[in-house]
Nucleic acid binder design. Sequence first.
DNA 1: CTTGAACCTACAGTGGCTGTAGCTCCTATC
DNA 2: GATAGGAGCTACAGCCACTGTAGGTTCAAG
Lengths: 153, 153
Amino acid sequence: MTAAQLSIGDLARDSGVKVQTIRYYETIGLLPVAERSAGNQRRYSEAHRERLRFLRHARELGFTLDQIRSLLSLSESPDMPCEQADRIAREHLETVEQRLERLKTLQTELQRMLRQCAGGKVEDCRVIEVLSDHTLCATEHGHREVAETPAET
Amino acid sequence: MTAAQLSIGDLARDSGVKVQTIRYYETIGLLPVAERSAGNQRRYSEAHRERLRFLRHARELGFTLDQIRSLLSLSESPDMPCEQADRIAREHLETVEQRLERLKTLQTELQRMLRQCAGGKVEDCRVIEVLSDHTLCATEHGHREVAETPAET
DNA sequence: CTTGAACCTACAGTGGCTGTAGCTCCTATC
DNA sequence: GATAGGAGCTACAGCCACTGTAGGTTCAAG
């Protein structure tokens, strides 16, 4: 059943992963190479669909592509102990928790900065002032521990 | 006083910003072009030092280089109202708070995953299972709202 | 004068995509 | 069967904020 052979667009709609991203996953070997139609277009099976869903879900949970690569290959050997999978998840959780700590500190500091700014001229601006002088900060943020990161989306 | 004319290495040690990064800031116009010694090496003044400290501090607080560009140019017009600086800081705070929310959700979900895993075989692994099936999740994470980001350092 | 650390430029690589240019292919309608 | 336009194809550049490398030059101490 369901031998539907999806096009890349179908797969994109199904999984919520963009067409280009699906092709990207193929080029980096995360998604197995798809068969092609007579006119050289990719045709996907149910197995691809499942793998891509796994991929997407793991990305949503913030795993890196490298971690996902490991998790995917683990999921293909059902008889192995799941220590490794656990370790990857625990490591990721730790990363997430470190980032949380860092972001909470930033939040506090930014709130403080904004609360203290009376909204006058730049000359007296607390925001600018604090940025110019770290000793005005309440906390020891940064210092190359866990740094900030740009946002996706 | 202090007309010391620092080398790029001195400046790096002073600010905690790496030599290459200082050069990078110059090429993208965040740090004014430095004078050069007879042998073509960069020589920095006190003004550079202050600007770089501002830069570093703002980076530690997670502002983007574009935001810092604006903040720096604002800090050079002390007579302007500080609305803009405030707006930038508020926007950044919002970003930070969105990321915090997102990370808290991830933390919860990862903890749940790990707690439920009995540590047997991959076949029965809760980690792998949850990744394969989003409906096993307690929360609606992801879906292209505010996504995860890689870590610096 | 020699050594070696620090400096210089130019460019490639990181992660995880995203966007563009310039094609070809597929399908629905006329 | 012709045509239009949406979907697909490849190849490659760009994003952010750096970081690292190669291969050369300059500087300061001994």
